[in-house]
Design a protein around this nucleic acid. Structure first.
Length: 270
DNA sequence: CGAACGACCTGCAGGC
DNA sequence: TGCCTGCAGGTCGTTC
C-alpha cells in the first residue's frame, strides 16, 4: 500500500491532531505482528508527550522525549485516527491512545513493523543504510549515474532499491519511468547522464504531485474512513494494462520484472 | 560483492 | 457454492 506519498500523506494527516499530546496508553492487541519493542514498552511510553512525527523513506518516526517509535507500514498497513471509545477490529493490531484521539494501526498482512529506539533514530539498523530522499537537494542525475556504476540491473529495480533512493515502490517506479520515457527493463549501464537527470526530475515531480493529491490509496485517516487517495485517478500506466497510453494511445503493456508487475507504454518508453 | 529468489501473511478475484 | 491458483502498495535472509 504505502510508498513515500502515502506515508507522507498519513504523516500530514495526523500530525496536527497528535502533536504535544501525551500518550495515555499504548495497546498491543496482537502479539504476533512485527513489534520489535521492549517488554515494558507500554510503561515506557505512558505519559510521554509526542514531540514530532517525521519521515525517513517509508518509515514514520514518532519522537518522544525518551525515545522514538518507528513504524513501517509494509504492504497493507495503515494508520487512522478514531474516536476515544473505538473498539479494535480485526487486523487492528495496535493503538496509541491520546487524550482527544486514538491512533490505530491496521495491517491485514502483518508485514508492517514497529521498532523502538532510545537515541539517534536515524542510526537504527533499518534506517542507517537508506539512500537519499527524492527531495534532497543533492538527489540528482549525477548521484544516480554514480550509484549505477558497478550495477547490472534493470532501471526499475534500481529505482526501487532503498539503498539508492528511499520511498519509491512498485507503483511509482512504473509511473516515474513512464514520465521519463524510459523502458523499465533498460539496464542501468545503458542510461546516459542526461536520462538520469530526467529520471531524478520526474521522480520528484511525480512524488510531489502524488503527495499533493493525497497518495494513490488510502486518503482519509481521520475517523477511520478508508477512501482512495486523489492520485489514484492520475496514475498513467500502473494497473492500466490493455488501456490506451494517455500520450500516444498505444496499448499499455505489463510484464513481471523481479517478481513485481510492471507497466509501460511500448511506444513512449525506449 | 551483487543478483535472484523464497519467505513472511491475509484476502480477494477469477477459473473450473 | 467451493476449491484452487495467482496476485497484491515491502523488504529481509539465504544462496549462488
Amino acid at each position: 500500500m504505502p510508498e513515500l506519498p502515502e506515508v507522507e500523506t498519513i504523516r500530514r494527516g495526523i500530525i496536527s491532531y497528535l502533536i504535544n499530546q501525551p500518550v495515555e496508553k499504548f495497546i498491543i492487541a496482537d502479539k504476533k505482528f512485527r513489534a520489535h519493542l521492549l517488554p515494558n514498552i507500554e510503561k515506557i511510553m505512558q505519559g510521554e508527550k509526542l514531540i514530532d512525527i517525521t519521515r525517513r523513506g517509508k518509515y514514520l518516526l514518532f519522537n518522544f522525549p525518551v525515545g522514538t517509535l518507528i513504524i513501517h507500514l509494509g504492504m497493507s498497513g495503515s494508520l487512522c485516527l478514531v474516536d476515544k471509545n473505538h473498539i479494535l477490529q480485526k487486523h487492528q493490531h495496535a493503538a496509541l491512545l491520546f487524550p482527544k484521539n486514538t491512533l490505530v494501526f491496521t495491517d491485514p498482512r502483518k508485514f508492517g513493523n514497529f521498532f523502538w529506539i532510545e537515541k539517534k533514530p536515524l542510526e537504527h539498523e533499518r534506517l542507517k543504510d537508506l539512500g537519499k530522499e527524492p527531495f534532497d537537494n543533492d538527489f540528482n542525475g549525477e548521484y544516480l549515474f554514480q550509484k549505477a556504476r558497478n550495477k547490472k540491473i534493470p532501471v526499475k529495480q534500481f529505482l526501487m532499491e532503498n539503498k539508492i533512493v528511499t520511498g519509491i515502490g512498485n507503483i511509482y517506479a512504473s509511473e516515474i519511468l513512464f514520465a521519463a520515457k524510459i523502458k523499465p527493463n533498460q539496464s542501468v549501464q545503458k542510461i546516459s547522464l542526461k536520462s538520469w537527470n530526467k529520471i531524478a526530475e520526474c521522480a520528484r515531480e511525480i512524488l510531489k504531485a502524488a503527495i499533493v493529491h493525497g497518495g494513490s490509496t488510502i486518503h482519509t485517516y481521520v475517523n477511520s474512513r478508508g477512501e482512495s487517495g486523489g492520485y489514484q485517478k492520475m496514475l498513467r500506466v500502473y494497473g492500466k494494462e490493455g488501456k490506451k497510453c494517455p500520450i500516444c494511445k498505444t496499448i499499455i503493456k505489463s510484464f513481471r520484472l523481479g517478481q513485481r508487475s510492471t507497466f509501460y507504454c511500448p511506444r513512449c518508453q525506449r
